[in-house]
């Protein structure tokens, strides 16, 4: 199939900044839901942050979570409605800073949900503050001299936190190239297939550009991910209890 049509879940133009990776990730997620015929059943637990901008543009049932609590809301939804695909869509600030506890405990309980964690190394919506995932030396509006790891600790690698847990699926991708985007799509599909087969917690972390707050041109942002960010956050599948997707 060469036909590439805008998936049905994308009901309006997105509201992200030029070059923002969320737009690509939204489309891949929508494609997977469409292809798996899950769009009509899916329930999303939405983070606070740039993810909020999806609420009118991404056409699945949404529940707006308080900042950081998306995984806890998803737990409540999934326990009550186990037949529905339930996912969180969160940035790194939401899922790994204020919501680190909720994110980790959903994984520790092996909740049968899918977490889409978008890592752009920064708090985007609030104006580019340092995130737990910001790189050493990274200049942000709250680390104007560059992130000092002596004072702020090392960047948080969520995959390392989760890879030894009893969970269903764990992967990290990026959206910097056709190859990487196709790979992320496969990861997201694997994640939802894990959930739909009752395989437990599935999480896909996606390295994504934030040209606006990185103060970088979009093309340079993609190069920055490939050349620098992935050295801290290697790509790949880290936990895969089920088989390959039959895509």
């Amino acid at each position: 199939m060469v036909e590439r049509l805008i998936p049905t879940a994308l009901v309006e133009d997105n509201k992200f900044c030029p070059g923002c990776g969320h737009g690509i990730i939204n489309r891949i997620l929508a494609e997977v839901l469409d292809e798996m015929k899950l769009t009509d059943k899916a329930i999303g637990s939405m983070a606070v942050g740039c993810a909020c901008l999806m609420v009118d543009t991404f056409g699945v049932d949404w529940i707006q979570s308080p900042h950081g609590r998306a995984a806890a809301l998803a737990t409540g939804i999934k326990r009550c409605r186990p037949e529905n695909p339930v996912f969180t869509y969160q940035g790194d600030g939401d899922s790994m800073s204020i919501g680190f506890s909720e994110t980790m405990y959903a994984a520790l309980r092996n909740e049968n949900i899918t977490a889409i964690l978008v890592n752009n190394g920064i708090f985007g919506m609030t104006g580019g503050q340092m995130a737990p995932t910001s790189l050493p030396g990274q200049k942000t509006v709250t680390s104007p001299m560059g992130r000092n790891t002596d004072l702020t600790g090392q960047p948080l690698n969520i995959i390392n936190q989760m890879k030894d847990l009893n969970i269903g699926y764990l992967a990290r991708g990026s959206v910097t190239s056709i190859k990487n985007i196709n790979r992320v799509k496969k990861y997201i599909r694997n994640a939802f297939e894990t959930q739909m087969s009752g395989g437990g917690y599935s999480m896909v972390e996606i390295l994504s550009p934030c040209p606006t707050n990185w103060k970088m041109m979009p093309d340079k942002s993609l190069e920055h991910i490939d050349n620098t960010v992935t050295t801290y956050y290697p790509l790949g599948e880290f936990v895969k209890k089920g088989g390959d997707s039959n895509e």
Binding site: P66, G76, S101, Y105
Partner: peptide, 16 residues
């Protein structure tokens, strides 16, 4: 794991 999570789970279940 905390009261914050507990009330949020309740929030999710109520929404469902």
């Amino acid at each position: 794991e905390s009261e914050l999570a507990g009330i949020s789970m309740v929030h999710g279940a109520a929404a469902a």
